[in-house]
Design a protein around this nucleic acid. Structure first.
Length: 877
DNA sequence: TCGGTCACG
DNA sequence: ACGTACGTGACCGAC
């Protein structure tokens, strides 16, 4: 294998990056977008090529021999924008810090340096890669010299590659003829005039016939069309000058020692420092532990006695801001405390520090320190009663608000991204990405884990807060998310009472029917098989029984309900299968599944997750109480096992069409707003408009279809999706949509506007400032991009509704507590709240609940709430 | 661990 | 032409 060198056209790539990467600047206000883009391109190229040598060529800011002649001649050369000019020296500084060789030569352009080096290296037997944004360079392409032209759009970089053959393929011309081409057609961006009246088409035609301009000129009388002939005759000297301008020098007098270009480790302390200064947070991630931190690794001191712990806590309180980590697995194992890089401690529960004592000290920290930063406030609340909304900071929630798309918000990522700190990860410490059983872990490792986590939340707090403020989400954070964490904590503690006996009976009843169906299915199929296996089921239905209804999924036949339903008339077995599926779903997920979560207090304590969804909704796990059946009667019956405490009733309230109301308000569409003000039946109203029938004559089917259209609008309508949902043709669906938008023009404007701003900004926001980034909009893949567009339409609506109910939850919970009620908020299901209320409180609490839900936001239309009470959840909804 | 399926909003 | 509705979580079988 021959060795490889990458040669980079410095100004050209910097220029590309400048225009391709949106405005960026560091905290000092220095523009950094071009440097950032340059580095991204550089890293991408290097990852692909793994060269042994690397050099960047720059022009000097002195007249250069080729272009300057024309610049003098023409008197033009657009000045570089200041924002770009200031990044040129910065770029050189960065490269120097990374140990990258820069080559310049007085009197020569970067092009000429590149051409010369490329020729030298290729002669020396190397593979050469030249990276430039300038197509002029294509003249240098050979079988061993590849020209790579990167394009950066929306921060996404794609690269076109040209060996000699690729140039021929694309331009029909040999590389050297690129010079001839420019001589004829010119190049405005490079100040090459060319000759008038000749563009790429004509120039190519001429060159295919005459190879070069000299030969073409000799045969000028034969040249067609006449316009080209005359132009070449008249402007031949201009063509010759152009040719000279376009020709890149390949034998400039440059002293070049190949060894000086040998690749070395970029990740020097100097580079780390400069990246940090420029706020290149995610480039810092490229520094692994050894190289990154010439600083000492984090040292955690283990605190084993009360005396020492007391002193640490005193210092922490004096310092003001402190990061706390709680090590929890079943029980509390210890707490990490940090208030500086040199102040990192771990206090394990042990002989001298009893759990109760540690909790007291935790209370002390939470009550005495100015700010206590943690990774998961809701979890911390399980171990302290002293936390107050005003002095706690939750780094996980903050990181979630800044980017809600991440799967996890780990302490090491947060420290890396927001504070530029490289900390030991869970994997570094424990050897695997999941926490092992803590009983098997050495004290030193556990201490390091706790210490790193505590330091992470300590050091990332200020940058996170600043970023929340910069992104206009600080209010959202302090007024909604932090109070919500307290609310969710209360809800989790409260839990939902479940009648275990009834649940068991429900499961038994299902079992009987499942057995019947199983027998029936085996009989009809003529064999026993696992009905729950889509693969086996597919084989039975589509191969053995030869039922119609082809493939759908990557792995084989689709046996999804909507497919089977269509087959039902022709095959009774599928009805049994569908029913079997329903029954087994109810049994495994709900009857049996829920039973495993009933605690000694007869209650199920779900976990409410605040940092999961992309839109700002909460989610519920272990178990999921947000997807308890309701649509089918048999499934809905399971709600009878959810019962309130003795002497209590459930109060269940749900918003009526909150998302459509949000849409009406955000879009300010007069027709929809008016319809809501008149308390019209919205789906009927839509049906009347879309299907052109009088309001009073809308059929139930039409109303149902209109309802689907309304849903579609909220989801970011597509004719295909709607047609799928309604089982109609795509054409009909398009017609519905068109008619819908005709009647609600502002809604169309609103949705279009969301897509437009999302494309410009890269994100959308809710009424309360919550952001959802939409990277899919930058995708070159049609499907991904379309998805991004639908998300841009949906997220502001779903997210605003999520914000609203969060506000309602906080206020309801606060009032229940402040006004001395025994009633408790138990559950939220996106547009629904469930309260357990002593019978004596039902009336007042119902009024309170309605008041806070309807008053949670000020929209252009009223928020309406449907409310019911009942002796179980089935009854109450 | 992943994909298919299906429960909810 | 591309092949889809938006947002979740649990369970199952197959790998």
């Amino acid at each position: 294998m021959s060795e490889k060198i990458v040669l980079i056209d410095g100004h050209s790539i910097l220029n590309r990056a400048f225009y391709g990467v949106p405005n960026l600047s560091n905290s000092e206000g220095i523009h950094t977008n071009a440097v950032y883009g340059f580095l991204n391109i550089l890293f991408k190229i290097l990852e692909e090529e793994h060269p042994q040598y690397l050099t960047v060529a720059f022009d000097l800011n002195v007249p250069t021999f080729r272009h300057n002649r024309y610049a003098e001649y023409k008197g033009t050369r657009k000045p570089m924008p200041g924002e770009l000019a200031e990044q040129v020296p910065l770029m050189k500084e960065v490269l120097k810090a990374m140990g990258v060789t820069i080559v310049t030569k007085e009197g020569y352009e970067a092009d000429d340096i590149l051409g010369t080096l490329a020729a030298k290296c290729e002669t020396g037997g190397m593979e050469v890669t030249i990276v430039s944004g300038d197509r002029d360079l294509l003249q240098l392409a050979t079988d061993h010299t590849m020209i790579r032209i990167p394009k950066t759009r929306f921060g996404q970089t794609t690269i076109e590659d040209y060996h000699a053959g690729d140039v021929v393929a694309k331009y029909q011309l040999l590389p050297y003829q690129i010079i001839e081409l420019k001589a004829l057609m010119g190049d405005a961006s490079d100040n090459i005039p060319g000759i008038p009246g000749v563009g790429e088409k004509t120039a190519t035609k001429i060159l295919l016939e005459y190879q070069n301009i000299e030969n073409a000129h000799e045969h000028v009388e034969d040249i067609r069309p006449n316009k080209a002939k005359n132009s070449l005759k008249e402007h031949y000297d201009m063509a010759k000058l152009s040719k000279e301008l376009a020709t890149i020098c390949t034998d400039c007098p440059i002293d070049f020692d190949i060894e000086s270009a040998r690749m070395t480790n970029f990740y020097t302390p100097e580079a780390y420092e400069i990246f940090r200064r420029l706020d290149f947070k995610n480039l810092l991630t490229r520094f692994d532990e050894e190289t990154a931190v010439s600083e000492k690794p984090l040292e955690t001191e283990i605190i084993r006695n009360k005396d020492k712990l007391g002193k640490i806590i005193q210092s922490a309180c004096d310092h003001g801001t402190v990061g706390i980590s709680l090590i929890i697995q079943e029980k509390l194992w210890g707490i990490g405390i940090s208030f500086g890089r040199e102040e990192v401690y771990y206090a394990p529960v042990g002989d001298l520090l009893e759990e109760e004592y540690l909790k007291e000290k935790l209370d002390l920290l939470f009550s005495k320190c100015d700010i206590v930063s943690v990774l998961d406030l809701k979890e911390a609340l399980k171990f302290t009663r002293a936390a107050k909304q005003k002095n706690v900071f939750d780094a996980q929630i903050a990181a979630y608000l800044i980017n809600p798309l991440k799967a996890k918000y780990t302490y090491d990522d947060i420290a890396k991204e927001f504070a530029g700190e490289m900390l030991a990860t869970v994997e570094d410490l424990f050897g695997k990405s999941k926490l092992p059983k803590l009983g098997t872990v050495s004290m030193d490792i556990l201490a390091a884990y706790a210490g790193n986590m505590a330091y992470s939340v300590y050091c990332s707090r200020d940058p996170l807060e600043k970023m929340l403020k910069d992104l206009n989400m600080y209010e959202l954070y302090t007024r909604i998310e932090i109070p919500l964490a307290f609310t969710l904590y209360d809800m989790e503690q409260a839990g939902m009472r479940v009648d275990a006996q009834s649940l068991k009976e429900y499961g038994d009843k299902l079992k009987l029917r499942i057995d019947e169906l199983e027998q029936s299915i085996y009989q009809q199929a003529g064999e026993k098989f696992n009905i729950n296996s889509p693969k086996q089921l597919g084989v039975v239905l589509f191969e053995k029984l030869q039922l119609p209804g082809g493939r759908k999924t990557k792995t084989g036949y689709s046996t999804a309900a909507d497919i089977l339903e269509k087959m039902a008339p022709s095959a009774p077995i599928v009805n049994d299968i569908l029913e079997y599926r329903q029954m087994t779903k109810l049994k495994s997920t709900y009857a049996d599944g829920l039973a495993g979560y009933i605690g000694a207090d007869d209650r199920i304590h779900s976990t409410f997750n605040q940092t999961i969804t992309a839109t700002g909704r909460i989610s519920s796990t272990e178990p999921n109480l947000q997807n308890i059946p309701i649509r089918m009667e048999l499934g809905k019956m399971i709600r009878k096992v959810f019962i309130p405490k003795d002497g209590c009733l459930f109060i269940d309230a749900d918003y009526s069409q909150i998302e459509l109301r949000v849409l009406a308000s955000l879009s300010a569409d007069e027709n929809l707003i008016e319809a809501y003000r008149e308390e019209k039946d919205i789906h009927r109203m839509t049906a009347s408009k879309v299907f052109h029938v009088p309001f009073g004559e809308v059929t139930p089917l039409q109303r149902r279809n209109a309802k689907a259209v309304n849903f579609g609008i909220v989801y970011g309508i597509s004719s295909f999706g709607l047609s799928q949902d309604l089982n109609i043709s795509r054409k009909e669906a398009s017609q519905y949509i068109e008619d819908y938008f005709k009647n609600y023009p502002k809604i169309k404007e609103f949705l279009d506007e969301k897509v437009k701003t999302a494309k410009e900004d890269g994100y959308v926001t809710t009424k309360f400032g919550r952001r959802r980034p939409i990277p899919e909009l930058k995708s070159s893949n049609f499907m991904q991009r379309s998805f991004g567009e639908r998300v841009a339409m949906n997220a502001p609506i779903q997210g605003t509704a999520a914000d609203i109910i969060k506000i309602a939850m906080i206020r309801v919970n606060e009032r229940l507590k402040n006004e001395g009620y025994k009633s408790k908020l138990l559950l939220q299901v996106h547009d629904e709240l469930l309260i357990e209320a002593p019978e004596t409180e039902v009336k007042d609490v119902s009024a309170l609940l309605k008041e806070e839900m309807t008053g949670a936001a000020d929209l252009a239309v009223a928020l309406e709430v449907d409310m019911h009470t009942g002796k179980d959840w089935y009854d109450a909804h």
